[in-house]
Amino acid sequence: MLIDSHCHLDFPELAADRAGVLARAKAAGIDGMVTISTRVKRFDEIKAIAEAHAEVWCSVGTHPHHADEELDIFTDDLVRLSAHPKCVAIGEAGLDYFYDNAPKEAQETGLRRHIAASRLTGLPLVIHSRSADVHMASVLSDEVGQGAFPFVLHCFTGGADLARKALELGGYISFSGIITFKNAEEIREVAKFVPADRYLVETDAPYLAPVPHRGGTNEPSYVAHTAAKVAEVRGISLEQLGTETTDNFFRLFSKAKA
């Protein structure tokens, strides 16, 4: 059993053949997935997908790329919307200093609002962090100091220092297809030391298709390739990885129903 803890079924690349995407995932042994919100103002579309499919859950949140577009979304809004039965997480929110599509101040404001919503609801915060390791570690340390909240660093691309800090603060690490890329040795090293009860696998579909599909459109069924590489790196069987990551998923995303 495998769970794709992060995909985007509303994005055009997957929406055009959503029935096929879901059928292929089922055939590949993927028993559930979370379709992740990137704009709160499109939450109706996200939740409708989750409502229509028993194996799909959703989140509510604003991607850092769009942080400045949704500064009128406050913590109370996130809390209210997250009460939907199929909504199992807050986010994705975070800091992306690689693309810098939104001002840094707006990204941090959004991130802290999402953290507050996670703390209030107990739902895990799905964190996007790219080229922002030092600032992300600082924000997480500061916020956990004000009160613990569950979180996962999704599609991990950071360094070992950020990973260790996140783990120290109680967070989880999620690995995507990037771990199969030739130049991802640093991420593979992180995958070796993350505790067995603190890691997940994901696709981030339609992006970042793993080898042997790199360069094409990613989809939830391909999480099997990511899982195989993580299992190889950790020196465990794919069956053991499936058990560990599924247990971890339902522990973190505790609102989801197995």
Rank of each mutant, 00 (worst) to 15 (best):
T121M: 08
L200G: 08
T180S: 09
E70P: 07
G177W: 03
V139M: 08
E105A: 15
E239S: 11
E202W: 03
V233T: 13
I127M: 14
T226K: 08
I36Q: 09
E13C: 02
K26V: 10
R119K: 13
T180A: 10
V79G: 05
R39I: 02
T203N: 11
A231N: 10
V194A: 07
A19Q: 14
R24N: 02
E239T: 13
Y99H: 14
G242D: 07
K182M: 04
Y207T: 11
D31H: 08
I179Q: 08
V34A: 05
V56Q: 11
A258N: 09
V190M: 11
H84W: 09
F98S: 00
E186D: 14
V233N: 09
E69F: 04
E55C: 12
T38G: 11
G145A: 05
L14P: 07
Y222R: 13
S82Q: 07
I236D: 07
G32A: 15
P220M: 10
E55Y: 01
I178G: 05
I30L: 14
I73H: 07
A116D: 14
K257E: 13
V201H: 03
D197S: 13
I49H: 07
T217G: 00
A50T: 00
V88K: 05
T226Y: 04
D100N: 15
L81R: 13
D197C: 04
V34R: 07
G94F: 06
K257D: 12
H6R: 03
H84F: 10
S131L: 05
W57E: 03
Y172V: 06
F250L: 00
P64K: 04
A102Y: 00
E143Y: 09
H84M: 03
F193G: 11
V21W: 00
A258D: 10
H213P: 01
L9N: 09
A209S: 12
E92N: 12
R130M: 06
V144N: 06
V134A: 15
R130E: 02
R24S: 04
P212E: 08
